[in-house]
Amino acid sequence: MKKSSAFLAVILLLSMSLLAACGGTKSGSDDSLDRVKKAGVLKVAIDASYPPMEFIDADGKTYIGFDVDYANALAEKLGVKAEFQNVAWDGILTGLKSGKYDVIISSMNITEERQKEVNFVEYVAMAQNFVSREGFDVKTEADLAGKVVAVQAETTSHMWVDELKATKVKDIKEIKSFPGATDAFLELKNKRADVVVIDEPVARYYAKIDGHKVTGQAMAAEPVGIAIRKEDASLMEALKKAVADTKSDGTFKSLSEKWFGSELGK
């Protein structure tokens, strides 16, 4: 019974997937922009545990952050309102692919891997920064020698530091990775790490509240984009234009200054 039931389970699973895959496809034509305009709503997904890009306000429920404000600005340019769905990072791309929302505006790095599945509208580039605790001053990658480094797991910073240790700066003392940015900074606060390597805006936010210093740039700025389904071509075009407009009319600049004190990447 065991063997045949396992086999049957696989058959069940496969047929379910096939059925659902067939059932889920929409008609060939792209009406994405019209659909959004008709609904009057741009559905945006964020993972609201990433200050200052997207996080919650003191009441625990209202979504705030650079990405939130930016999404609202873009929606306005499209003549609609932004509606947010808070999805933990592990599921955020799945939700986009299955049509739960229109876009992801959640500091998602544009990578080749991801571009196989979705399109991106680049809106900002974020560098990776060193945040050192008191008594340490990590300015360059060479300075990482002999230090305990904390990073957020599975980020480009993480991969960069791993690569460094394997090649150029072999005497990095230790690399500790954590599921959340907060955890990495907690490690720093408790003096169990000497430096954190992380996205610039996040670095600045936590440096400010914990009293550390942003001491240098680890990696050059990497593009961050709005993730959108490949078939939503018209919506993508409209967003590209909206992004360009925010850059030219100063919206992007004022939001940057509001959240980071200066324009990002500069």
Partner: peptide
């Protein structure tokens, strides 16, 4: 359920911690 957009107890706590660092 947080991975499919439900803000349940764990996610809500994580968000507060992310915001305030008050672990």
């Amino acid at each position: 359920a947080m991975v499919v957009g439900v803000v349940e107890l764990m996610k809500q706590s994580q968000q507060f911690v992310a915001r305030t660092a008050n672990v």
